[in-house]
Design a protein around this nucleic acid. Structure first.
Ligand code: FES
Ligand code: FES
Lengths: 146, 146
DNA sequence: TTATTAAAAGACAAAAAGGTCTTTTGGTAA
DNA sequence: TTACCAAAAGACCTTTTTGTCTTTTAATAA
């Protein structure tokens, strides 16, 4: 579905938001351990996401990553677009230059509604809405974490 | 959705089946031109698919690629699995080790039905069913081809 | 103000995906 | 049986993805 970087980013940001709820600002090592991602890699990924404005960070003792409470929730489609580019979930499943319902490929009829469902999903869900689900114990971040 | 190799394979095999209907056995250069794929690359891809038993080929003058009329239709899920491996459309969208509805990630609820729809689609459609749609002029292989 | 802490920056590297090309093999047709 | 044709085989290359590591910068706390 998503590439590794996107997966790590999703799990990482949800974990960060979850910890922020408890007034904590997790650092790269803790995040890497909890979401089971390569430490240096998640550090690099978060660095880029901070630069892109998705969240903030603080250096030094007590430092770490956190979301600005004044900023609006982050729809995961924004995250995905920022990492994978806009190509995701817009193109033709057959690889035609563009998906055109007036000139459809033989998969279009059945694929287009699925693609729409994916777009709806990633537009509606935000990092915060996902974190909320985990917080309510309804859903899981990994096999250990509740 | 799919990777490049899968896209080329899908378009290539549908084109081959379409030509077979007219008693022709297209070769790599013709296929590459018609489906707009890199010639040497589609040659390599088809070579692998022949070896994997998806279709047959003949060398020399009048040679080319063709489907054995006695063999059953090829569901595209087989093609996709052969190229991309089984990981596609079975794993967790969040990257958890396994998708487990008793222990779901926060995307599971909305993603699982979508994944099911994808699996249904690629299980039901075959190279031949797709070629048939193109043949009936209902759907397109590329922007030039009818 | 100094030691310590943790992120930022950026170089580096391994692996996978995507693509190219040459040589060999096995067919066809004259 | 010779010339030719087209796929098979496999080496090679480029780009992208994924991942690692060292050095620098900025914040905190003693
Ligand atoms: S034309 Fe291929 S998915 Fe729309
Ligand atoms: S647990 Fe993540 S999609 Fe099922």
């Amino acid at each position: 579905m998503f590439n590794k970087e996107t997966e790590y980013a999703l799990r990482g940001l949800v974990y960060i938001d979850l910890q922020n709820m408890g007034g904590r600002r997790p650092g790269t090592l803790e995040i890497a351990r909890e979401i089971e991602a390569p430490p240096f890699y998640i550090a690099k990924i978060l660095q880029r996401l901070v630069r892109a404005g998705f969240l903030r960070s603080l250096k030094g003792k007590g430092g770490g990553f956190f979301f600005d409470p004044d900023k609006p929730d982050v729809p995961i489609i924004n995250l995905i677009s920022s990492i994978e580019g806009d190509r995701s979930f817009s193109g033709c499943s057959f690889g035609l230059k563009q998906c055109d319902s007036d000139n459809p490929c033989p998969l279009h009829g059945k694929y287009a509604p699925i693609r729409e469902a994916i777009n709806k999903l990633i537009t509606e869900e935000t990092v915060q809405s996902l974190a909320e689900k985990v917080y309510k114990n309804e859903f899981h971040l990994n096999e250990f974490l509740k």
